[in-house]
Design a protein around this nucleic acid. Sequence first.
RNA 1: GGAGGGAUGACAGAGCGGCCGAAUGUACCGGUCUUGAAAACCGGCGUGGGCUUGCCCACCGUGGGUUCAAAUCCCACUCCCUCCGCCA
Length: 435
Amino acid sequence: MIDLVQLRREPDEIKAALARRGVSSATMDEVIVLDVEHRRLLQEAESLRAEIKDLSRQVGEARRDQDTARAESLTARSRALGDEERAAREATDRVAASLRESLLMIPNVPADDVPEGLDENDNVEIDRWWVGKEEGQPFPEYAPHQRVAHWDVGKELGILDLEAGARLAGSMFPLYRGAGARLLRALGAFALDAHLDDYEEIRPPSFALTETMTSTGHLPKSQDDMYAIPRDDLWAIPTAEVPLTSMHRGEILDESRLPIRLTAQTACFRREAGAAGRDTRGLLRVHEFDKVELFAYCTPEQADAAHADILARAEGLLRSLGLTYRLLRLCTGDLGSSSARTIDLEVFSPGVDRWLEVSSVSWFRDYQARRANVRYRRADGTTALVHTVNGSALAWARIWAALVETYRQSDGTVQLPDVLSPYLGGRTRLTPKVS
RNA sequence: GGAGGGAUGACAGAGCGGCCGAAUGUACCGGUCUUGAAAACCGGCGUGGGCUUGCCCACCGUGGGUUCAAAUCCCACUCCCUCCGCCA
């Protein structure tokens, strides 16, 4: 949620920044009006409250002095004020609720370096990498044997059974088998191990309460994109960012502990409402996928370095897997609602001949921390909201697809990169199932 | 799922419905003493919000209720602990 105090102090700056991502100035004016009204009512209610407290204290004194007549007259006055106070408080609460409701729907203020744009077509490519680039080799030419879509490779080798997944849970719930399932397990272990130098490994719950979802900004905005279990007030997490952001909810962290860096692999659940039929073949877009997430709570001063570190780690994994990828700076129109700045990593998958988003590295400023109420204590004793930063490293379903396409050999086998060997028991070559 | 016990500041732990935002201890910060440290002593030490910056308001697991007045009484819920049942 954005900073209301800042909105009061510099309404024009905030309005201008939010206008870049489509929030009308009329919407912001409504918020400002609600805020003014809220404070007016709050003052009214509080001064009534103060009066009642004072009268009540005097009743106590009168009782102690055995002055029954005085006590009763004071009681009568206080009782009369009580009705007024209740009405004032209810009015205050009503306005506070609608103020909060409005604030929850307002996206984060974009950073200055976020490019202008309407949708993903306006994202700006800032870098591109492929094996041998540093040695001066040109962008790779992919051979015909690499131009086979992963769903065909998967079927050929018996490592991906989309029909079985669909039978169990409907379409877009993939089922991996044999070496395909093991490859997925290997990727997770490979990535988690790579981050353990600086990041604590977490295994959080796969479900979270409405309150938790709200603190990351996923609710109320994205409720149609998530799986809900209403009987238990639970939602299936769309990313480990949700539990990690709430891990320290309501806490005041000592500055010396920052940055707190966490990594977690979880299943991620996405309803992908409205996406039916669009780029949904194979593993391009699925309802459930595994992802290793990197996350940091930090001070504002540490945020840039924390963001850069996560980005470097995600890139590092792609490079050691030998996959071609590019970096995109998301434009205002494509930026996630909670984010102030996001860099996407897209891997090139030759079989389907497209760039697939496999990581999104975002800086949230204090937007999530304000909702989740995560603060830190500075050396001078004051408190401030932390900044949160996160990124995927990486989302495995699409990496799986890019790997089997990129490394498909002319004989139809797939020769996986050596870095995965320890996690595959040395079996880096995937061959067609004989049975 | 059943029975019982509990939830108060960083921690421990008091708190007859009325100077209780909360005793006391520990921890922590500052000072005195000391060559220095420890001990002792003195002082400080929760978080938010509002405005007339000096005051006011809120918060004792959460949400309701009773009352002139609630940490304190009532109801519901959540979580933790113990026991029973069930269970990977």
